[in-house]
Design a protein around this nucleic acid. Structure first.
Lengths: 226, 226
DNA sequence: AATTTTTTTCATACTTCCATCACATTTTGG
DNA sequence: CCAAAATGTGATGGAAGTATGAAAAAAATT
């Protein structure tokens, strides 16, 4: 893809410059933001083909920004982290991150991954979807169809469902769901999850049992729902 | 990567068997589908670390299936084709196919390519599993299969089994099991373990004797269980 | 500011599971 | 082969986990 637009969000100017320098060589157009809030503003104003996020940032960290972006867009995201902790990586992929690099990284490797991601999102001309038999989610338009019929979900219902759909089969505890869908800073009753599961199931109609209760543990998403 | 899960989609049973035979030697868990529709169903229900697709198939051909999979997943795909036409190959790589083999191929070469692909996709969405002959546990989805058939376990049964499966061969006293599975602070009758072993054995059916009683000491997990 | 919608909390009903005990069965040592 | 010790099994009351409905609180919309 030529002239792809890339947004870099990192509070360290040095890193931004480094990336920018390398990436510009390849005919990409690069914008920068120094913190999460700035990044969000730019993201909402402009259109990007790829976003590179640093995890550690003042004001709004990378995970929060990532979560906010994922609410409305499936634009490819690469996360940069100072730590190499496995947990971070997992959280990243759960949130739908496309790639994950640990600092210090070689600019060459970053460039290679950028290209790989852009390459595979090119052929993906149809809007990103997840289909589980008669249940279809369209991540671009934020719509969900049940046997072809459009259903209406509240924002939380949609976020919960799309999180499940992006991470099928895996069991999540209520705490994990609160962390991943509500945000790590959420304080509140874990039973809230139950209520949202209940409402989501109602909305899913015939497919209500795709959200499977795993007794003593939490919930998982399973097409066919057994 | 150990115990990677592989899906083979090919209408020719001979080819499936050939591949399965070779690939099973390497501790991969193999599922089969005889046509594209079956393959899609399995893909949606289970998760795989690698998918092998034949191009020519009734009902839904390999390209169509590949396209459908690529809409929602970046799982590695190897295509098999009877023809060696350059056009096919190109189409394959455009669709994001990871490798491409022309029939007839040597099983050895296929195996080599499978390994290469799995090696480079380490850290991807493979799900941790434990396989003991026909007994398969999936730690992500908290499911257990007996000869491919899903069995349902209570939370304690699952915890107990997964503890055993993670520590095979070793003998554990009832006290140790209470400590490890129930928790350090558990106070109660050690005979409780017996009851859960009993119930677990019932659930395991044919594999009930994988939980071996070590007289005067406790229990151990032994595939083949004598 | 008022109304509507969404989210959260909470109480209650409901379901599933678990620890215990009594008794049956098996194993071991003498 | 017997007695004692250890393990297997079935039944059950109570505990723990989940579903649900409704009301309060918070957000969004008008």
């Amino acid at each position: 893809m030529d002239h792809a637009r890339i947004l870099i969000v990192d509070d360290e100017a040095l890193i931004r410059d480094l990336i920018k320098e390398y990436v510009s060589l390849e005919n990409f157009a690069v914008d920068e933001a120094a913190d999460g809030q700035q990044g969000l503003d730019l993201f909402q104003r402009e259109h990007y083909d790829l976003i590179i996020l640093d995890v550690m940032m003042p004001i709004m960290d990378g995970w929060n920004l990532c979560r906010k972006i994922r609410r409305v867009s499936q634009v490819p995201i690469i996360m940069l982290s100072a730590r190499g902790e496995e947990y971070d990586k997992l959280l990243g992929f759960e949130l739908g991150v496309d790639d994950y690099l640990t600092k210090p990284f070689s600019p060459k490797e970053l460039l290679a991954r950028i290209k790989a991601i852009l390459r595979r999102s090119v052929g993906n001309d149809s809007s990103p979807q997840a289909v589980f038999e008669g249940l279809r989610l369209d991540f671009d338009s934020h719509t969900v169809k049940v046997d072809g019929r459009l259903i209406s979900l509240t924002p939380k219902e949609y976020e919960l469902l799309s999180f499940f759909a992006r991470n099928p089969h895996r069991v999540f505890s209520r705490e994990q769901l609160l962390n991943s869908v509500w945000g790590y800073d959420y304080i509140g009753d874990t039973r809230t999850v139950d209520t949202h599961v209940k409402m989501l199931r109602e909305s899913l109609g015939v497919y209500r049992n795709y959200i499977v209760t795993v007794w003593g543990t939490g919930y998982k998403f399973e097409a066919g729902g057994k």
